[in-house]
Design a protein around this nucleic acid. Sequence first.
DNA 1: AAATATACAAAAAACGATTATTGTTTAATT
DNA 2: AATTAAACAATAATCGTTTTTTGTATATTT
Lengths: 206, 206
Amino acid sequence: MTSVTNNQFNSVDYDDPMVARILDAGEQCIHRFGIRRTSMGEVARVGRLSRGSIYRHFGDKESLVEGVFRRRQALFLNRTEAELETLPTLVDKLTESVVSGRKDMREGIFASLAETEPETVAMMFLDPRFYQRSVSFWPPHIRMAQVTGEISADVDVATATDLVMRLAVSMVMFPDMGVTLKTRPALKQYLQQVICHGLGGAASSR
Amino acid sequence: MTSVTNNQFNSVDYDDPMVARILDAGEQCIHRFGIRRTSMGEVARVGRLSRGSIYRHFGDKESLVEGVFRRRQALFLNRTEAELETLPTLVDKLTESVVSGRKDMREGIFASLAETEPETVAMMFLDPRFYQRSVSFWPPHIRMAQVTGEISADVDVATATDLVMRLAVSMVMFPDMGVTLKTRPALKQYLQQVICHGLGGAASSR
DNA sequence: AAATATACAAAAAACGATTATTGTTTAATT
DNA sequence: AATTAAACAATAATCGTTTTTTGTATATTT
Protein backbone atom coordinates (compact mmCIF):
# COMPACT_ATOMS: atom_id res chain seq x y z
CA MET A 1 0.00 0.00 0.00
CA THR A 2 2.81 2.40 0.86
CA SER A 3 5.30 1.04 -1.64
CA VAL A 4 6.80 3.53 -4.05
CA THR A 5 9.35 1.35 -5.81
CA ASN A 6 6.63 -1.08 -6.75
CA ASN A 7 7.34 -2.42 -10.22
CA GLN A 8 4.59 -5.02 -10.28
CA PHE A 9 5.23 -6.49 -13.69
CA ASN A 10 5.65 -3.98 -16.48
CA SER A 11 9.17 -3.45 -17.77
CA VAL A 12 11.65 -5.40 -15.70
CA ASP A 13 15.05 -3.72 -15.52
CA TYR A 14 17.75 -6.09 -16.70
CA ASP A 15 20.34 -4.06 -14.75
CA ASP A 16 19.03 -5.22 -11.38
CA PRO A 17 21.49 -7.99 -10.49
CA MET A 18 18.76 -10.02 -8.82
CA VAL A 19 16.61 -9.86 -11.95
CA ALA A 20 19.62 -10.90 -14.00
CA ARG A 21 20.25 -13.87 -11.71
CA ILE A 22 16.64 -14.96 -11.95
CA LEU A 23 16.62 -14.67 -15.74
CA ASP A 24 19.96 -16.44 -16.02
CA ALA A 25 18.70 -19.34 -13.94
CA GLY A 26 15.38 -19.35 -15.77
CA GLU A 27 17.02 -19.38 -19.17
CA GLN A 28 19.38 -22.14 -18.13
CA CYS A 29 16.47 -24.28 -16.97
CA ILE A 30 14.39 -23.63 -20.08
CA HIS A 31 17.41 -24.36 -22.22
CA ARG A 32 17.97 -27.69 -20.48
CA PHE A 33 14.52 -29.00 -19.65
CA GLY A 34 12.07 -26.91 -21.65
CA ILE A 35 9.33 -24.72 -20.24
CA ARG A 36 6.94 -27.42 -19.06
CA ARG A 37 9.51 -29.28 -17.01
CA THR A 38 10.97 -26.15 -15.45
CA SER A 39 9.58 -25.35 -11.99
CA MET A 40 9.99 -22.16 -10.01
CA GLY A 41 11.67 -24.23 -7.29
CA GLU A 42 14.23 -25.52 -9.78
CA VAL A 43 14.93 -22.00 -11.04
CA ALA A 44 15.45 -20.89 -7.44
CA ARG A 45 17.82 -23.79 -6.77
CA VAL A 46 19.83 -23.18 -9.94
CA GLY A 47 20.05 -19.45 -9.23
CA ARG A 48 20.72 -20.03 -5.52
CA LEU A 49 17.90 -17.80 -4.45
CA SER A 50 14.47 -18.08 -2.90
CA ARG A 51 11.24 -18.70 -4.68
CA GLY A 52 9.91 -15.58 -2.96
CA SER A 53 12.40 -13.40 -4.80
CA ILE A 54 11.28 -14.73 -8.13
CA TYR A 55 7.67 -14.01 -7.29
CA ARG A 56 8.64 -10.52 -6.16
CA HIS A 57 10.09 -9.65 -9.57
CA PHE A 58 7.87 -11.77 -11.78
CA GLY A 59 4.25 -12.22 -10.82
CA ASP A 60 4.02 -15.79 -12.10
CA LYS A 61 5.74 -18.43 -14.14
CA GLU A 62 4.38 -17.10 -17.40
CA SER A 63 5.90 -13.69 -16.70
CA LEU A 64 9.24 -15.27 -15.92
CA VAL A 65 9.24 -17.23 -19.17
CA GLU A 66 8.20 -14.13 -21.06
CA GLY A 67 10.97 -12.22 -19.33
CA VAL A 68 13.56 -14.76 -20.42
CA PHE A 69 12.47 -14.54 -24.05
CA ARG A 70 12.12 -10.77 -24.02
CA ARG A 71 15.67 -10.40 -22.77
CA ARG A 72 16.95 -12.83 -25.38
CA GLN A 73 15.15 -10.89 -28.07
CA ALA A 74 16.42 -7.57 -26.73
CA LEU A 75 19.98 -8.92 -26.77
CA PHE A 76 19.47 -10.22 -30.29
CA LEU A 77 18.15 -6.87 -31.48
CA ASN A 78 21.01 -4.97 -29.84
CA ARG A 79 23.61 -7.27 -31.30
CA THR A 80 21.99 -7.12 -34.73
CA GLU A 81 21.63 -3.35 -34.51
CA ALA A 82 25.37 -3.08 -33.92
CA GLU A 83 26.13 -5.29 -36.90
CA LEU A 84 23.84 -3.28 -39.13
CA GLU A 85 25.66 -0.03 -38.32
CA THR A 86 28.58 -1.27 -40.37
CA LEU A 87 26.49 -2.10 -43.45
CA PRO A 88 25.89 0.40 -46.25
CA THR A 89 22.52 -0.50 -47.78
CA LEU A 90 19.07 -1.52 -46.57
CA VAL A 91 19.34 -4.70 -48.59
CA ASP A 92 22.61 -5.57 -46.87
CA LYS A 93 21.01 -4.91 -43.52
CA LEU A 94 17.99 -7.06 -44.25
CA THR A 95 20.16 -9.85 -45.59
CA GLU A 96 22.31 -9.75 -42.48
CA SER A 97 19.23 -9.76 -40.24
CA VAL A 98 17.88 -12.85 -41.91
CA VAL A 99 21.20 -14.67 -41.71
CA SER A 100 21.48 -13.66 -38.05
CA GLY A 101 17.93 -14.64 -37.33
CA ARG A 102 18.37 -18.04 -38.91
CA LYS A 103 21.52 -18.65 -36.93
CA ASP A 104 19.71 -17.79 -33.70
CA MET A 105 16.94 -20.20 -34.61
CA ARG A 106 19.44 -22.95 -35.26
CA GLU A 107 21.68 -22.39 -32.26
CA GLY A 108 19.85 -20.30 -29.70
CA ILE A 109 17.31 -21.13 -27.05
CA PHE A 110 14.65 -21.81 -29.68
CA ALA A 111 16.61 -24.66 -31.17
CA SER A 112 16.79 -26.57 -27.90
CA LEU A 113 13.21 -25.71 -27.01
CA ALA A 114 12.03 -26.90 -30.41
CA GLU A 115 13.40 -30.35 -29.62
CA THR A 116 11.39 -30.82 -26.44
CA GLU A 117 8.36 -28.58 -27.12
CA PRO A 118 7.99 -27.84 -30.84
CA GLU A 119 4.31 -26.89 -30.45
CA THR A 120 5.24 -24.18 -27.97
CA VAL A 121 7.81 -22.75 -30.35
CA ALA A 122 5.28 -22.86 -33.17
CA MET A 123 2.76 -20.98 -31.04
CA MET A 124 5.34 -18.30 -30.20
CA PHE A 125 6.23 -17.86 -33.86
CA LEU A 126 2.62 -17.31 -34.83
CA ASP A 127 1.99 -14.82 -32.03
CA PRO A 128 1.97 -11.33 -33.55
CA ARG A 129 3.32 -9.87 -30.28
CA PHE A 130 6.53 -11.70 -30.98
CA TYR A 131 7.15 -9.43 -33.95
CA GLN A 132 5.50 -6.25 -32.77
CA ARG A 133 8.46 -5.67 -30.46
CA SER A 134 10.73 -5.43 -33.50
CA VAL A 135 8.62 -2.92 -35.38
CA SER A 136 10.47 0.05 -33.88
CA PHE A 137 13.74 -1.43 -35.06
CA TRP A 138 13.56 -0.64 -38.77
CA PRO A 139 12.23 2.90 -39.33
CA PRO A 140 15.61 4.66 -38.85
CA HIS A 141 17.19 2.37 -41.42
CA ILE A 142 14.27 2.91 -43.78
CA ARG A 143 14.68 6.70 -43.57
CA MET A 144 18.40 6.38 -44.13
CA ALA A 145 17.78 4.34 -47.27
CA GLN A 146 15.36 6.98 -48.46
CA VAL A 147 17.97 9.68 -47.97
CA THR A 148 20.60 7.78 -49.93
CA GLY A 149 18.03 7.09 -52.64
CA GLU A 150 18.22 3.33 -52.29
CA ILE A 151 14.45 3.30 -51.88
CA SER A 152 11.85 5.86 -52.79
CA ALA A 153 10.95 8.68 -50.41
CA ASP A 154 7.38 8.46 -51.67
CA VAL A 155 6.69 5.18 -49.88
CA ASP A 156 5.79 5.93 -46.30
CA VAL A 157 8.03 4.60 -43.56
CA ALA A 158 5.37 2.44 -41.93
CA THR A 159 4.64 0.62 -45.16
CA ALA A 160 8.31 0.07 -45.90
CA THR A 161 8.87 -1.19 -42.36
CA ASP A 162 5.97 -3.56 -42.74
CA LEU A 163 7.37 -5.07 -45.93
CA VAL A 164 10.87 -5.39 -44.55
CA MET A 165 9.53 -7.13 -41.44
CA ARG A 166 7.38 -9.48 -43.50
CA LEU A 167 10.31 -10.42 -45.68
CA ALA A 168 12.56 -10.96 -42.69
CA VAL A 169 10.03 -13.14 -40.89
CA SER A 170 9.18 -15.08 -44.03
CA MET A 171 12.83 -15.71 -44.89
CA VAL A 172 13.68 -16.93 -41.40
CA MET A 173 10.58 -19.12 -41.16
CA PHE A 174 10.80 -20.52 -44.69
CA PRO A 175 14.27 -20.61 -46.24
CA ASP A 176 12.70 -22.27 -49.26
CA MET A 177 9.33 -21.25 -50.68
CA GLY A 178 9.79 -22.51 -54.20
CA VAL A 179 13.12 -20.83 -54.75
CA THR A 180 15.92 -21.92 -52.45
CA LEU A 181 17.30 -18.93 -50.60
CA LYS A 182 19.62 -20.63 -48.17
CA THR A 183 22.89 -19.04 -49.20
CA ARG A 184 23.69 -15.41 -48.44
CA PRO A 185 24.33 -14.38 -52.07
CA ALA A 186 21.09 -15.94 -53.31
CA LEU A 187 19.22 -14.31 -50.47
CA LYS A 188 20.74 -10.90 -51.07
CA GLN A 189 20.10 -10.97 -54.79
CA TYR A 190 16.47 -11.91 -54.17
CA LEU A 191 15.96 -9.19 -51.57
CA GLN A 192 17.70 -6.66 -53.82
CA GLN A 193 15.20 -7.37 -56.58
CA VAL A 194 12.16 -7.40 -54.32
CA ILE A 195 13.03 -4.32 -52.27
CA CYS A 196 14.21 -2.15 -55.12
CA HIS A 197 11.84 -3.11 -57.91
CA GLY A 198 9.29 -5.63 -56.68
CA LEU A 199 8.34 -7.64 -59.73
CA GLY A 200 8.38 -4.51 -61.84
CA GLY A 201 11.09 -3.76 -64.39
CA ALA A 202 14.84 -3.14 -64.04
CA ALA A 203 15.83 -6.70 -63.24
CA SER A 204 18.83 -6.19 -65.46
CA SER A 205 20.30 -2.68 -65.87
CA ARG A 206 17.98 -1.02 -68.32
CA MET B 1 1.68 -59.95 -53.75
CA THR B 2 -0.41 -60.40 -56.87
CA SER B 3 -2.37 -57.17 -56.51
CA VAL B 4 -2.36 -54.84 -59.48
CA THR B 5 -4.75 -52.19 -58.21
CA ASN B 6 -2.58 -51.70 -55.17
CA ASN B 7 -2.58 -48.01 -54.28
CA GLN B 8 -0.81 -48.32 -50.98
CA PHE B 9 -0.75 -44.70 -49.93
CA ASN B 10 0.41 -42.30 -52.63
CA SER B 11 -2.26 -40.17 -54.27
CA VAL B 12 -5.70 -41.26 -53.09
CA ASP B 13 -8.34 -40.74 -55.74
CA TYR B 14 -11.13 -38.56 -54.42
CA ASP B 15 -13.46 -40.03 -57.05
CA ASP B 16 -13.62 -43.43 -55.37
CA PRO B 17 -16.93 -43.22 -53.47
CA MET B 18 -15.52 -45.26 -50.58
CA VAL B 19 -12.59 -42.87 -50.22
CA ALA B 20 -15.01 -39.96 -50.31
CA ARG B 21 -17.14 -41.54 -47.60
CA ILE B 22 -14.09 -42.10 -45.42
CA LEU B 23 -12.86 -38.56 -45.91
CA ASP B 24 -16.32 -37.12 -45.30
CA ALA B 25 -16.63 -39.00 -42.04
CA GLY B 26 -13.07 -38.15 -41.07
CA GLU B 27 -13.54 -34.47 -41.76
CA GLN B 28 -16.80 -34.43 -39.84
CA CYS B 29 -15.12 -35.98 -36.81
CA ILE B 30 -12.09 -33.69 -36.94
CA HIS B 31 -14.39 -30.72 -37.32
CA ARG B 32 -16.39 -31.71 -34.26
CA PHE B 33 -13.88 -33.25 -31.88
CA GLY B 34 -10.46 -32.32 -33.17
CA ILE B 35 -7.77 -34.74 -34.30
CA ARG B 36 -6.75 -36.11 -30.90
CA ARG B 37 -10.26 -37.06 -29.87
CA THR B 38 -11.14 -38.62 -33.22
CA SER B 39 -10.69 -42.41 -33.32
CA MET B 40 -10.75 -44.66 -36.35
CA GLY B 41 -13.69 -46.50 -34.80
CA GLU B 42 -15.63 -43.24 -34.52
CA VAL B 43 -14.87 -42.38 -38.15
CA ALA B 44 -16.09 -45.84 -39.15
CA ARG B 45 -19.28 -45.42 -37.12
CA VAL B 46 -20.00 -41.95 -38.55
CA GLY B 47 -19.31 -43.15 -42.11
CA ARG B 48 -21.20 -46.40 -41.54
CA LEU B 49 -18.31 -48.51 -42.72
CA SER B 50 -15.73 -50.83 -41.23
CA ARG B 51 -12.42 -49.93 -39.71
CA GLY B 52 -10.84 -52.36 -42.13
CA SER B 53 -11.91 -50.29 -45.13
CA ILE B 54 -10.30 -47.22 -43.69
CA TYR B 55 -7.05 -49.09 -43.14
CA ARG B 56 -7.26 -50.42 -46.68
CA HIS B 57 -7.31 -46.93 -48.19
CA PHE B 58 -5.23 -45.09 -45.62
CA GLY B 59 -2.36 -46.87 -43.97
CA ASP B 60 -2.80 -45.23 -40.61
CA LYS B 61 -4.53 -42.43 -38.77
CA GLU B 62 -1.91 -39.88 -39.76
CA SER B 63 -2.53 -40.64 -43.44
CA LEU B 64 -6.26 -40.25 -42.98
CA VAL B 65 -5.84 -36.87 -41.30
CA GLU B 66 -3.43 -35.80 -44.01
CA GLY B 67 -5.93 -36.99 -46.61
CA VAL B 68 -8.68 -34.87 -45.10
CA PHE B 69 -6.55 -31.75 -45.14
CA ARG B 70 -5.16 -32.41 -48.59
CA ARG B 71 -8.64 -32.71 -50.00
CA ARG B 72 -9.72 -29.52 -48.23
CA GLN B 73 -6.72 -27.70 -49.66
CA ALA B 74 -7.34 -29.10 -53.13
CA LEU B 75 -10.94 -27.89 -52.97
CA PHE B 76 -9.78 -24.51 -51.75
CA LEU B 77 -7.28 -24.21 -54.58
CA ASN B 78 -9.84 -25.24 -57.19
CA ARG B 79 -12.40 -22.81 -55.88
CA THR B 80 -9.85 -20.02 -55.69
CA GLU B 81 -8.53 -20.83 -59.15
CA ALA B 82 -12.03 -20.41 -60.53
CA GLU B 83 -12.44 -17.05 -58.81
CA LEU B 84 -9.11 -15.84 -60.13
CA GLU B 85 -10.11 -16.56 -63.73
CA THR B 86 -12.48 -13.63 -63.55
CA LEU B 87 -9.88 -11.16 -62.29
CA PRO B 88 -7.77 -9.02 -64.61
CA THR B 89 -4.49 -8.35 -62.80
CA LEU B 90 -2.01 -10.32 -60.70
CA VAL B 91 -2.51 -7.87 -57.87
CA ASP B 92 -6.26 -8.47 -57.97
CA LYS B 93 -5.65 -12.20 -57.92
CA LEU B 94 -3.27 -12.04 -55.00
CA THR B 95 -5.63 -9.78 -53.08
CA GLU B 96 -8.50 -12.16 -53.69
CA SER B 97 -6.39 -15.14 -52.62
CA VAL B 98 -5.52 -13.47 -49.34
CA VAL B 99 -9.13 -12.49 -48.64
CA SER B 100 -10.21 -16.03 -49.51
CA GLY B 101 -7.47 -17.56 -47.41
CA ARG B 102 -8.36 -15.45 -44.41
CA LYS B 103 -12.00 -16.39 -44.73
CA ASP B 104 -11.10 -20.08 -44.82
CA MET B 105 -8.97 -19.65 -41.71
CA ARG B 106 -11.84 -17.95 -39.90
CA GLU B 107 -14.63 -20.27 -40.99
CA GLY B 108 -13.17 -23.50 -42.27
CA ILE B 109 -11.88 -26.60 -40.56
CA PHE B 110 -8.87 -24.73 -39.21
CA ALA B 111 -11.01 -22.36 -37.20
CA SER B 112 -12.71 -25.14 -35.28
CA LEU B 113 -9.49 -27.10 -34.93
CA ALA B 114 -7.71 -24.01 -33.61
CA GLU B 115 -10.17 -23.90 -30.73
CA THR B 116 -9.44 -27.39 -29.49
CA GLU B 117 -5.86 -27.92 -30.69
CA PRO B 118 -4.17 -24.59 -31.48
CA GLU B 119 -0.68 -26.10 -31.22
CA THR B 120 -1.51 -28.60 -33.95
CA VAL B 121 -2.71 -25.82 -36.23
CA ALA B 122 0.43 -23.83 -35.47
CA MET B 123 2.58 -26.81 -36.37
CA MET B 124 0.74 -27.29 -39.68
CA PHE B 125 1.18 -23.64 -40.57
CA LEU B 126 4.92 -23.80 -40.02
CA ASP B 127 5.32 -26.97 -42.05
CA PRO B 128 6.79 -26.04 -45.45
CA ARG B 129 4.97 -28.97 -47.08
CA PHE B 130 1.73 -27.17 -46.37
CA TYR B 131 2.74 -24.49 -48.86
CA GLN B 132 4.77 -26.52 -51.32
CA ARG B 133 1.53 -27.98 -52.67
CA SER B 134 0.46 -24.49 -53.75
CA VAL B 135 3.66 -23.65 -55.57
CA SER B 136 2.37 -24.97 -58.89
CA PHE B 137 -0.66 -22.74 -58.56
CA TRP B 138 0.86 -19.38 -59.45
CA PRO B 139 3.23 -19.71 -62.43
CA PRO B 140 0.52 -19.48 -65.13
CA HIS B 141 -0.78 -16.28 -63.57
CA ILE B 142 2.73 -14.92 -63.31
CA ARG B 143 3.36 -15.54 -67.00
CA MET B 144 0.06 -13.92 -67.89
CA ALA B 145 1.02 -10.83 -65.90
CA GLN B 146 4.33 -10.73 -67.73
CA VAL B 147 2.55 -10.84 -71.07
CA THR B 148 0.23 -7.99 -70.18
CA GLY B 149 3.19 -6.04 -68.88
CA GLU B 150 1.89 -5.79 -65.33
CA ILE B 151 5.19 -7.22 -64.13
CA SER B 152 8.55 -7.44 -65.83
CA ALA B 153 9.42 -10.37 -68.09
CA ASP B 154 13.01 -10.11 -66.84
CA VAL B 155 12.16 -11.56 -63.43
CA ASP B 156 12.07 -15.30 -63.68
CA VAL B 157 8.82 -17.10 -62.98
CA ALA B 158 10.13 -19.10 -60.01
CA THR B 159 11.29 -15.96 -58.22
CA ALA B 160 8.04 -14.16 -58.86
CA THR B 161 6.07 -17.18 -57.67
CA ASP B 162 8.16 -17.30 -54.52
CA LEU B 163 7.45 -13.67 -53.70
CA VAL B 164 3.74 -13.96 -54.40
CA MET B 165 3.53 -17.04 -52.18
CA ARG B 166 5.46 -15.35 -49.38
CA LEU B 167 3.20 -12.33 -49.51
CA ALA B 168 0.08 -14.48 -49.54
CA VAL B 169 1.22 -16.57 -46.59
CA SER B 170 2.42 -13.55 -44.65
CA MET B 171 -0.82 -11.64 -45.21
CA VAL B 172 -3.01 -14.54 -44.14
CA MET B 173 -0.89 -15.32 -41.09
CA PHE B 174 -0.38 -11.72 -40.00
CA PRO B 175 -3.07 -9.26 -41.08
CA ASP B 176 -1.19 -6.59 -39.14
CA MET B 177 2.60 -6.34 -39.16
CA GLY B 178 2.90 -2.69 -38.28
CA VAL B 179 0.53 -1.46 -40.93
CA THR B 180 -3.04 -2.71 -40.64
CA LEU B 181 -4.03 -4.52 -43.83
CA LYS B 182 -7.35 -5.95 -42.79
CA THR B 183 -9.58 -4.29 -45.37
CA ARG B 184 -9.52 -5.31 -49.01
CA PRO B 185 -8.71 -1.83 -50.38
CA ALA B 186 -5.81 -1.32 -47.95
CA LEU B 187 -4.51 -4.78 -48.79
CA LYS B 188 -4.77 -4.26 -52.53
CA GLN B 189 -3.05 -0.88 -52.44
CA TYR B 190 -0.21 -2.34 -50.40
CA LEU B 191 0.22 -5.33 -52.71
CA GLN B 192 0.03 -3.07 -55.75
CA GLN B 193 2.97 -1.06 -54.45
CA VAL B 194 5.05 -4.05 -53.37
CA ILE B 195 4.46 -6.18 -56.46
CA CYS B 196 4.89 -3.46 -59.05
CA HIS B 197 7.63 -1.34 -57.52
CA GLY B 198 8.87 -2.86 -54.27
CA LEU B 199 10.11 0.06 -52.23
CA GLY B 200 11.62 1.62 -55.31
CA GLY B 201 10.18 4.69 -57.02
CA ALA B 202 6.86 5.28 -58.77
CA ALA B 203 4.72 5.33 -55.65
CA SER B 204 2.83 8.13 -57.33
CA SER B 205 2.60 8.21 -61.12
CA ARG B 206 5.92 9.53 -62.27
C1' DA C 1 14.05 -2.44 1.79
C1' DA C 2 14.91 -6.50 -0.19
C1' DA C 3 15.90 -11.45 0.33
C1' DT C 4 14.95 -15.50 2.80
C1' DA C 5 12.57 -19.28 5.13
C1' DT C 6 8.47 -21.33 6.14
C1' DA C 7 3.70 -22.46 5.93
C1' DC C 8 -0.48 -23.02 3.44
C1' DA C 9 -4.63 -23.91 0.21
C1' DA C 10 -5.55 -24.44 -4.65
C1' DA C 11 -4.00 -26.02 -8.98
C1' DA C 12 -1.25 -28.90 -11.78
C1' DA C 13 1.79 -32.87 -12.65
C1' DA C 14 3.21 -37.66 -11.95
C1' DC C 15 1.89 -42.04 -11.14
C1' DG C 16 0.01 -46.73 -11.62
C1' DA C 17 -4.06 -49.44 -12.84
C1' DT C 18 -7.70 -49.80 -16.13
C1' DT C 19 -9.85 -49.10 -20.39
C1' DA C 20 -9.82 -47.77 -25.30
C1' DT C 21 -7.49 -47.45 -29.66
C1' DT C 22 -4.34 -48.80 -33.07
C1' DG C 23 -2.73 -51.48 -36.61
C1' DT C 24 -2.57 -56.33 -38.32
C1' DT C 25 -4.51 -60.62 -39.45
C1' DT C 26 -7.94 -64.00 -40.84
C1' DA C 27 -12.39 -65.93 -42.19
C1' DA C 28 -17.05 -64.73 -43.77
C1' DT C 29 -20.00 -61.68 -46.69
C1' DT C 30 -21.41 -58.66 -50.57
C1' DA D 1 -12.06 -57.91 -55.43
C1' DA D 2 -13.56 -55.21 -52.02
C1' DT D 3 -16.00 -54.84 -47.67
C1' DT D 4 -17.09 -56.56 -43.37
C1' DA D 5 -16.66 -58.78 -38.88
C1' DA D 6 -13.98 -60.50 -35.38
C1' DA D 7 -9.87 -61.49 -32.82
C1' DC D 8 -5.48 -60.04 -31.23
C1' DA D 9 -1.02 -57.95 -29.18
C1' DA D 10 1.05 -53.51 -28.75
C1' DT D 11 0.34 -48.88 -27.92
C1' DA D 12 -1.98 -44.90 -26.19
C1' DA D 13 -5.67 -42.56 -23.57
C1' DT D 14 -8.31 -42.19 -19.34
C1' DC D 15 -9.20 -42.31 -14.48
C1' DG D 16 -8.69 -41.77 -9.64
C1' DT D 17 -5.00 -41.13 -6.39
C1' DT D 18 -0.78 -39.30 -4.64
C1' DT D 19 2.74 -36.02 -4.98
C1' DT D 20 4.55 -31.77 -6.60
C1' DT D 21 4.13 -27.13 -7.84
C1' DT D 22 2.03 -22.75 -7.77
C1' DG D 23 0.93 -18.52 -5.91
C1' DT D 24 0.19 -16.00 -1.55
C1' DA D 25 1.09 -14.69 3.13
C1' DT D 26 3.89 -13.92 7.17
C1' DA D 27 7.71 -13.87 10.30
C1' DT D 28 12.87 -13.66 10.18
C1' DT D 29 17.41 -12.44 8.37
C1' DT D 30 20.73 -9.68 5.71
